Computed example of a mutant assay.
Amino acid sequence: MGELILCRGTLAAVPYFLESIAVNIYSLEELAWCMDQHAELTGIDIYKESFAGWVKEELGLADEGQTLFDLLAGKKDMAEFTDTVLKMVSYLDEEQRRRVLARIKAYEDKSLFEQEILKADRFLMSGKYKSSIRAYEPLTEHVPENRREEVLLGRVWHNMGTAYARLFMFARAGECYEKAYAKNEEQESAEAALLSRACLEEDFKKEPQDKKFLEQWQKIQETKKNGDVRGYEALLFGMMEQWKQEYRKAAEDR
Rank of each mutant, 00 (worst) to 15 (best):
E64A: 05
F51I: 11
K75C: 05
L71H: 06
T84Y: 05
A234T: 08
A13C: 01
K225N: 02
F170M: 04
Q242G: 02
Q187M: 14
R8M: 05
L41H: 10
K211Q: 11
C34I: 00
R254L: 11
E175S: 11
K183G: 06
E94M: 01
D210I: 04
K87C: 14
Q209Y: 12
Q209N: 11
K119M: 09
Q216W: 07
L61K: 05
L86V: 14
F113A: 08
F81K: 02
G43Y: 08
E145S: 13
Y107V: 04
A171C: 11
A171V: 06
Y26N: 05
K130S: 09
L92Y: 12
L6T: 13
A182K: 03
V156M: 12
D45F: 09
F51D: 07
D109F: 10
E64F: 13
G65C: 13
K119I: 03
E116R: 08
E233I: 06
K130D: 09
F213S: 01
D109T: 00
I104N: 02
I44Q: 03
V229E: 15
Q242C: 01
E116M: 03
E58S: 14
R98P: 01
L118S: 02
L194M: 14
L41A: 15
L59Q: 03
F170H: 08
H38R: 08
L214H: 08
L41Y: 15
A163T: 05
I44P: 01
M239W: 15
G65L: 03
Q216P: 02
D121G: 00
R148W: 10
Y177N: 00
Y181I: 01
D63K: 15
V156Q: 02
E49N: 14
A12R: 01
K110Y: 02
D70F: 10
